[in-house]
Every structure is written in structure tokens, then in C-alpha cells.
Design a binder for these strands. Structure first.
Lengths: 340, 340
DNA sequence: TTGAAAGCGCTAACAG
DNA sequence: CTGTTAGCGCTTTCAA
């Protein structure tokens, strides 16, 4: 390895081939008006010299970059990972490459301003469009298209992919009520996230529909983390009149519930039913019932929408709704029960 | 949202502020030699106009970009995800941002040539350095530093972070043999991956050390996937004289073993002991014993090494060895046993 | 079929 | 303290 030497440029190639830079550029861009022997010679030299075009310089001059940006607050979070898997799959099927932008910490760039900044940064320079996950911003200034996955804003001013959170939440509650549960706890999600609010609304409305009085004491705060899920589940389960089921606003917090139940010697689902939103693999192996939010599929669909937009199709403000439905993990539960 | 309008450039800002572009550039780069009222005025205008500097143009001129590249074959694979988590954490603690490059499919860019291409593409243009995961290439042409995480090559020609695969494998075998196992199956990893070979070597040597004859029939092929792990575990368990323990070259295939065992009505660990390398969360919740390869920590360390290299420290060819050791998942097993 | 030259947006000397 | 100027590596007219 040497990383001292100046990178080889189009000039070097041109010089070695005894032609002008414009001719090399033509070959690079697959233009047809080049003599085939010239072309072969240049191609050979490009191989010999190990030339790679300078992304920055290229982006500056040409419109098409075959690069899609993905702005994610925190790639360590299972929620982001699931979406990335779907994005990844769609990218693999396309002829675009992926540029992921993150500052690593959900605190460090979770704000509207940061998001807007990154979107501009990418779209005004090296990407053909960007996908932004869990966007909080109400608006983006960009000269290339964007698609938001699961935006916090309910009716965003830009194209987006959303799950039917309210509907999915209703379905969970109907399921639990159908099993005979009357006291059902709810671990909330982050206050500032739209989908969390819709999940809570589903919880409340389903109770009303079933004629069950709402007990505010069964609704706790939350922030989508396992730690806080554990904390409030513990609190709920220690009530003098504890719930017989707990519905968590996402499955990270559902895992927290699982831990609290284990600690208190409760069996799931015999002593306590637990359902969580989002459906990550850990929930699957724990045997927790979940609501499938198709996180990966949302990412997949977002890429497809974006590619259409880049290609010039006018779906400017389209919102794609993905149906979220209950996934009963019975087979996994059986699997784990059998294995031990 | 508007994505028709031309992006606002440094020229626009200069014109609006009634100064030259260089003055704006100075403000942008935090140079001190600017009158503070001029600076305030420019900053205000930058805010008003929603100006973001053009990444491409900036990269072309200046040396420092505060951007680290990460080249990963397939971000959907748990192995990659674990490493990315560690990278993410290190990035969060630094003042660098992350640019992830992938073509999405392990088949699509798994070759040396592709890797070399991406490394050049990034390092010769917009990044200050790149981290390359599971690199197959023997050499890279680049004018900025690179660090490889878990390279296929045993003694690469560039800085790298590696786990002590051979040692970890020995430890597993000593553990299993200590439990009284004499017939231990081995599900191999991908042939072309160096670490997989070292794990197999550990398996073989440990048997020899214990004076146990090697039965080639207990060693199967493999490719690190759950599906193939399942297939060969099934084959092993149906032998007339089946193994009492199976050691899988990674924990994805260990999960396949788990499934095969379940299907055949075997209890783990009573009827069959299972150990896998790598330690992803699914294995944790399944209660499988694993070898911790510190995947996340490897990513973390790689970023730190890279930042040192970027800063000019001369550890050019340093290889950082992370100790891999057996992790007994007894508490998780208990947790699952209690919960159901 | 090819080359010369302009310029993308920006930074970094160099003058003033 | 600020403006002028010269490119970075590339694509793209426009001529030849």
C-alpha cells in the first residue's frame, strides 16, 4: 500500500495514451463517437494505471451520479437497521449505489436543522436524491428529490412512506380484549414522534369502542428504549391492581417489559401478555407477539419511489401507506418451549 | 419543498453580503482574520438563504473533509451490522462523519477488484480515510489511509483489526471436551475467508491435543448462512453415530443448527451442545453459547486507528489483535427457561 | 473522430 | 482585514 503518491487523474491517462483529456472523458462516459482502437488503448491504460474517476470532480460537472443518500440518525438502533436492510435490498436490485450519512448519535443530529443540513449537503452535491429516516423537519430545501420513511410529521410536505400505525394499534387491542384482557398497560413512545401518538390513539379508541373505561394509571411515558420499557413495566407490574397485558409502543421497550416480567417471576404469555410494535428479530426469538411495521419493506419501497422521482416521474407528494398488522409469534414460542 | 431551484452557492452569499467569495469562504472555514461585524452579517445571510457548502467542490480543493468512508459488502448481514454499531459509536465520539459505501449485495461487490475500486473512489475524492470490512484484496492503491476489519488475508499489507480466531476456537473445543464430548461436529465457514480457516484449524488442533482421532465425517462445508447451517446440521444429526456437540464457524449457522435440533426433537444443551462464533443478539436470546469476536469493538477500534492515521501518526502497518473468548450464555438460558 | 477551452463551486496563495 | 486570481479534476460545448 502506498498512500503518499498523488492519485492518478484523467490527465495522467490522457498523457499516457497520447490523447486529450476530452477523449478520455468520452471513453469514461461511454460516448459512441470514439474510434474503437483509441477506446481500447485508453481502456487498457486505465486498467494499468488503476485510474478511478474523482467522485467530487465528477459530481460537480454532471447531473447524474448514480448515488442515493440515506440520512439516518443512529445506525446502532434496531429500528434503523431494519429499514437499512430493506434499503439495501432495493439498492442491490438497482444500478444505484448507497451513501449513508450519519453523525452517529441520535442526540447529535436528531434536530430538524441537522437533518435539513445533511439533506442539502448531499443533494446539492453528490447524490441524485436522498432517503431520510424518521425525519422531524417540516420542510427541506433541496434541488434533488427526497423520500421520507416514517416521518414524525403526520402530513409532511414531501413524499413519504408510512405505516398504518393507528390501524395496527387497534388490531392489537382487539386481539388482547378478545383474549379477555380488561386491564391493559401501555408503554408510550417518544412524545415528539407522530407514529407514537397514533399508536396511543389506537389504544385509547379501542378501549372506548369496547366500552372499557380508560385508566390513565395504566399509560406510562416512554422513549422507545429497552431500559425505559423495563423501568415502566416494572412500575406497572407492581401496582396493587396490575395489568394482565402490556402493549408497548415499540418492541425494544417490549423487550424491556419481557425483562421486568422475568425478574418478577411472571410467565409470558400465561401470566402476562406482551405485544410490541415494529417486529425486530430479537422479539421473534423471545416469542413476543408483535405488530409488523414492515420496517424493511418501508425502506425498500422508499428506494423505489425515490428512483422513480429521480427518473423524472411526478409523484412529488405521494404518501405510500404500508399496512401494519398483528404478527402472532406462536410458532416461535413453541419452538423455544420445545427446545428447553 | 422545492427541488427546481438552483442550489444557493457561495457566490450568492457573497453578492448578498456585498463581499467577495473569499471572505465568505474564510467565514465558512472559521478563519480568524475577518472583522466580526462582517462575519455576523455573512453568517446571518447564510442562515437566511439556507446555504450549504457543496461537498464536491469543497472536497476538490481542501485536504481535510472530516469524513470517514466505510466499505461494507452487505449491510443486511448481522455480521456487518454488529461491526457498524461499533463504528457508529466511535464516529459519534469523534468529529468525523460517516459515509457508507455498499452495492448492497455480497455477490455484486465481493471481489477484490470492486473493493479496490470503492476504496480508490472514496479516498481519492471525498473521504479522509476508509475502513473496509472483510476485505479480500491483497493490496489497495490509495492516497489516504485505510484500516481493514477482519480481513480475509492473514497477513495483509495494510493496517488491520483482527480477532484471535485460532485461540478462540481452541478455547471452545477445550470447553466441549471438558464437558465430556468426544464426537464434535464442525460446520465450516466460507472457504475463501481466512478467519474461517483459522477456526477450523483450532478445531483440529484441539482434538489432536486431547488425543481424539479426527473424524472427517464430522466436518461439513458451510458459508456462514443460517440456511446452510441448518442443512448440514441436519445431515450430521442423522448420522448413525451422530455428534453430541456441534461447533459452528459463525453464529448464523449456529442458529441453523438450533433449528435442525428443534425439528428433530433434540433439547439444547441436554441432548446437543451448540457453540457458534461471533455473538450476535439472536444467539443471545436463543441461549446459544458463543465465542465473542467483539465485532462491534473491532469496528470501534478500527475507527480510532484510522483517525490516528489521518492525523499523521505512523502506525502504517499495525495489526490490532482483539482477544476472542468463550461466552457462556447460561444466564440467558435461565432467563428463557424461567419465562416459559 | 478529436482537441482546445470554458467553467462547475470552492479554497488558498498573494497582494493590497 | 479584504479582494484578486489561479487552479482542483472533470464534462461539455464549439471548432477543427
Amino acid at each position: 500500500m502506498n498512500h503518499k503518491k498523488r492519485a492518478v487523474t484523467i490527465q495522467d491517462v490522457a498523457k499516457a495514451a497520447g490523447v486529450s483529456v476530452s477523449t478520455v472523458s468520452r471513453v469514461l462516459n461511454g460516448k459512441i463517437d470514439v474510434a474503437s482502437d483509441t477506446q481500447d488503448r485508453i481502456l487498457a491504460i486505465i486498467g494499468d494505471l488503476g485510474y478511478t474517476s474523482n467522485l467530487a470532480a465528477r459530481s460537480m460537472r454532471s447531473y447524474k451520479k448514480n448515488l442515493i443518500g440515506l440520512v439516518v440518525p443512529d445506525i446502532g438502533f434496531p429500528y434503523s437497521i431494519e429499514i437499512m436492510k430493506g434499503v439495501n435490498r432495493a439498492i442491490a436490485e438497482s444500478n444505484f449505489d448507497l451513501l449513508l450519512y450519519t453523525t452517529g448519535d441520535i442526540q447529535k443530529n436528531g434536530t430538524d436543522l441537522h437533518e435539513q443540513h445533511y439533506v442539502s449537503l448531499l443533494n446539492n452535491s453528490i447524490t441524485d436524491g436522498v432517503i431520510i429516516v424518521a425525519s422531524a423537519a417540516a420542510e427541506f430545501i433541496t434541488n434533488a428529490p427526497i423520500v421520507a420513511v416514517d416521518p414524525h410529521v403526520v402530513n409532511p410536505n414531501y413524499p413519504s412512506v408510512q405505516g398504518t400505525n393507528y390501524h395496527g394499534s387497534l388490531e392489537v387491542m382487539e386481539y388482547l380484549i378478545g383474549q379477555g384482557h380488561r386491564r391493559i398497560g401501555f408503554i408510550s413512545g417518544r412524545q415528539d414522534v407522530g407514529s407514537a401518538g397514533r399508536r396511543l390513539k389506537g389504544y385509547q379508541d379501542a378501549l372506548a369502542n369496547a366500552g372499557i373505561d380508560l385508566d390513565e394509571g395504566l399509560i406510562t411515558p416512554g422513549d422507545f428504549t429497552q431500559k425505559i420499557g423495563y423501568k415502566y413495566a416494572r412500575q406497572l407490574l407492581k401496582l396493587s391492581n396490575p395489568p394482565t397485558a402490556i402493549f408497548a409502543a415499540n418492541d425494544q421497550s417490549a423487550i424491556g417489559v419481557f425483562e421486568a416480567a422475568e425478574e418478577l417471576g411472571l410467565r409470558i404469555p400465561e401470566d402476562l401478555s406482551v405485544v410490541g410494535f415494529d417486529n425486530i428479530s430479537e422479539a421473534k426469538y423471545l416469542g413476543l407477539t408483535t405488530v409488523d411495521q414492515f420496517l424493511a419493506d418501508m425502506g425498500y419501497v422508499a428506494v423505489q419511489m425515490l428512483i422513480k422521482l429521480i427518473g423524472g416521474e411526478l409523484l412529488e407528494l405521494e404518501t405510500y401507506k404500508m399496512q401494519t398488522k398483528l404478527v402472532e409469534r406462536t410458532s416461535c414460542q413453541k419452538l423455544i418451549q420445545t427446545a428447553y
